[in-house]
Design a protein around this nucleic acid. Structure first.
Lengths: 340, 340
DNA sequence: ATGAAAGCGCTAACAC
DNA sequence: GTGTTAGCGCTTTCAT
């Protein structure tokens, strides 16, 4: 199809080795004249290097692989953007594997990635007991990879958000504003992030001498709909006397918020609400939801940075990069101390 | 690194040609015994074909390229999901090029894609006069590609949404509900979709003998913030007597909605609002925004389908696939006919 | 029913 | 300074 090195070489009357060196910037000992002629020819003939051929000899493809559960989820597309931008700056391209949260798909992509000789892999969330084998296999092969928000034993390089601390801080804020009965909506507890957030909530309660009441813990799955569902359950149970709701992510918080409004109640006058981040949502609402700010884009970038360190064979000082999470108070938690 | 064809061949005491045929299902004239032995060895040794090597000889990479302006935008990530799922079903992988809406980035990705011998390319929106050259170049090289929502002369294969018709229908609905002064917020008019939506709006007005009032047309850029900004302008101009707002997409509609609420007004009692789709938004609001339902995922899938037809060299009956758009009335438009 | 050999486009080592 | 050569892992004739 396209122009090859050989075409350029013949056109210039030099060998393809010479052209190769020039193209790869290893023109140390090549005459300026030749360099110019070759460069002209490259432009003239419109040469594009064949990456496959190059990969075969260099053993690297300048590509990194990324597996994510769902690219249409804002969390993961924002993450992918961070990874992609960082890769781009290093002259790498990105192959994305959409797993649909299925472990066998993830395994499949590992094969695909290897077949395509990607230089390294980044794995975003998905959790199962089988995973350790997966990662151990890669480690044994010395295949560089980085995980995002996946806590696993024998810690491999990874980037994380301080989910526990974020949940803890937000819960503390609610308590400090005078709430003693705070309902919690969990995410899918098989994921590390959801279970850590739950732990943070519980720890904060205990730290303020509030007994954790299992009746106040509702289980969701990070979806908007599960926020709705919990909202309906909540209002059905007459005896539920919570004054505030904390959702493990913002999507669920929004789902719950909808139920509050559709019951003709107001936030925060009748009920306070907060969410632990992880989904973009357009403000609109008044008040907006008090939340935990999550640096998703940076998380992706940092994961890629870590991978590139690995690829350069650099000694990694810290195999785990952790991100602090900050509370963003937007007025959806009522301050009970001010009434009297 | 990994196991090669040759490894398998030696292990089984056959030639690599034989193994190759078996792996590629061209085992027509190979003894069942050999087949079984090879297949066992493949499993045992954990063979993964080297795609780069294969591509070199077959001249195809089983990869398609997709350029999008912003992967973290729901429209494009949903689109990418559709493309990816369809690709997956055909045994293809997806290389995504994030252009940040920059034409030179898009050009760069064309190079990258060619270098990686992607079998075909799908281009999602971005618009400029330089584009025609770009596409003509590809066409001359007989490089298969498909566009999404890009109207260009000498129509290349592409998939489209009936933006004009969608805007037209939604505007008509507003008029039928008795609105005569309908403000419009445009998207960036350099994009085909935005300008078509504007045309649809104007045409609907004219069809009902309503003069198009340029004072009622505000320019936005598809962002939430521009919806806010237009909202502020709107309320600043005392003489603006519109009873309804139509935004060229939902993000802007939401931005405007926020301004309505923050002025202490209600939808649709004080002001009616609608948006022409293109962004996911969580319901929450009451009423939800009346909108145009957009089959974004399907659009992506259909684009990929079209590309695969091209790749198979099949005769394309229709080079343009168009999607009908339907109005989704959710109550944010007040019916002025019912009052007296 | 299977093997030998050529060649895809490129880079790297070593000659000259 | 530049050319020659070998080889990366695979598929594909063409022999046998």
């Amino acid at each position: 199809m396209g122009t090859t090195l050989k075409d350029i070489a013949e056109y210039c009357g030099v060998s393809s080795a010479t052209v190769s060196m020039i193209i790869n910037g290893k023109s140390g000992r090549i005459s300026d004249d030749t360099i110019r002629r070759v460069e002209d020819a490259v432009r003239h003939l419109g040469y594009t290097p064949n990456i496959a051929a190059r990969s075969m000899v260099t053993k690297q493809s300048k590509t990194i692989g990324l597996t994510i559960p769902d690219i249409s989820d804002y969390f993961f597309s924002e993450l992918a953007k961070g990874v992609g931008d960082e890769a781009d700056e290093h002259g790498y391209d990105l192959l994305i594997g959409n797993t649909g949260s299925k472990l066998d798909k993830e395994k499949e992509y590992i094969q695909v990635f290897q077949g395509r000789s990607v230089d390294g892999i980044i794995f975003a969330p998905l959790n199962s007991c089988e995973e350790n084998d997966l990662f151990q296999g890669l480690q044994k092969k010395h295949y560089p990879f980085v995980t995002i928000e996946r806590y696993i034993k024998d810690q491999v390089p990874g980037v994380f958000m301080k989910n526990f601390q974020g949940a803890y801080d937000l819960t503390r804020l609610m308590i400090e504003k005078g709430h003693r009965k705070i309902a919690f909506i969990t995410g899918p507890l098989c994921t590390a992030s959801a279970s850590q957030r739950l732990s943070g909530y519980k720890a904060a309660c205990r730290s303020m001498n509030i007994a954790v009441d299992e009746q106040l813990i509702f289980s969701g799955d990070f979806s908007y709909e599960s926020g709705n569902r919990v909202g309906m359950e909540f209002f059905d149970e007459r005896e539920c006397t919570a004054t505030a709701i904390l959702a493990s992510n913002n999507r669920m918080a929004l789902g719950f918020y909808e139920e509050i409004l559709s019951h003709g109640l107001s936030v925060p006058e009748d009920l306070s609400i907060a969410g632990i981040g992880g989904a973009r949502f357009y403000p609109v609402l008044n008040p907006k939801i008090t939340t935990i700010d999550m640096p998703i884009y940076d998380l992706g970038r940092e994961a890629a940075k870590l991978l590139f360190h690995l690829l350069k064979g650099e000694e990694i000082k810290k195999r785990a990069v952790e991100f602090n999470l900050n509370v963003l108070d937007q007025g959806s938690i009522r301050d009970l101390n001010t009434l009297r």
